[in-house]
């Protein structure tokens, strides 16, 4: 058990080291970089919009419910919703959703390429498979996740505001007043830093699990499950570490 854990960390570390070294070979990975921007970024926008809107909506309803009997200004609901979305929820919930969408795709894609010898075929041609397959996915993840965080935060705030208006909980100007009252640019920056880290966690773990997949269809299935579960787990751990260090 202990040996397996060390072995796994060793392999993961080796892959990251190779990726770092390979990141200098831009001619190899730039062929796939744009494609990964589209797959990780553009194609994730619908699910991020959906996640963002509902997170914001639920936050408004629950905050209003929790503060229902308190003698405080209703605009405070806007403040709580805004800060919660910017600091925590937009980054964490959208990353957990993307661990399923992006992480599973990467692990399945690379795992299938491994077991059908497509990765061996790339290597046998003299191509650096880490540079060609792993580097563009990790880079695209780290660059696209902050963009998706901004989309999630913007739609979350919109969803929260609209829900407040449509349910007669608080008028739009009260929500905006509260949002502006406790808005700190650092919160957005913190959310973006978190999403870069989460993007790295999801893409690197999924690449690792897919790249070293073994055992045919069953092995690819196991790698995909492990990639998704581990990504979610490490997102939560990293969330705690970042909050402890940066807040």
């Amino acid at each position: 058990m202990r040996f397996t854990l060390f072995h796994e960390f060793g392999l993961y570390g080796t892959l990251l080291y190779q990726s770092l070294r390979s990141s200098l070979e831009s001619t190899t990975y730039r062929m796939n970089l744009f494609q990964e921007f589209v797959k990780i970024g553009y194609e994730s926008i619908p699910i991020i919009l959906l996640t963002g809107v509902f997170t914001g909506a639920v936050m408004t309803i629950q905050t209003a419910y929790q503060l229902g009997n308190a003698f405080i200004a209703s605009s405070i609901i806007g403040s709580i919703v805004t800060q919660s979305l910017l600091i925590e929820l937009s980054a964490v919930i959208s990353s957990l959703v993307l661990a399923g969408k992006v992480g599973a795709r990467i692990a399945t894609e690379l795992g299938t390429m491994r077991v059908s010898e497509q990765i061996d075929a790339l290597e046998s041609m003299g191509l650096n498979s880490v540079s060609f397959l792993v580097v563009p996915r990790i880079l695209a993840g780290m660059l696209m996740f902050p963009v998706l965080y901004v989309v999630a935060a913007a739609t979350g705030l919109t969803g929260g505001l609209l829900t407040g208006v449509l349910t007669d909980t608080l008028p739009a100007f009260e929500f905006m007043k509260g949002a502006r009252l406790f808005f700190f640019p650092w919160d957005v920056l913190f959310g973006m830093i978190k999403s870069i880290v989460f993007g790295f966690i999801i893409t690197s773990i999924s690449c690792y699990k897919g790249y070293y997949a073994t055992g045919g269809a069953e092995g690819v299935g196991q790698s995909t499950t492990q990639a998704t579960v581990l990504s979610c787990m490490y997102i939560l751990v990293a969330d705690f570490v970042l909050a402890s260090l940066l807040l």
Partner: peptide, 15 residues
């Protein structure tokens, strides 16, 4: 490696 060509068992075509 570029002096070699390999025909893999299942073809190993990029799908």
């Amino acid at each position: 490696r570029q002096r070699f060509g390999i025909l893999f068992q299942g073809g190993a075509l990029f799908d």
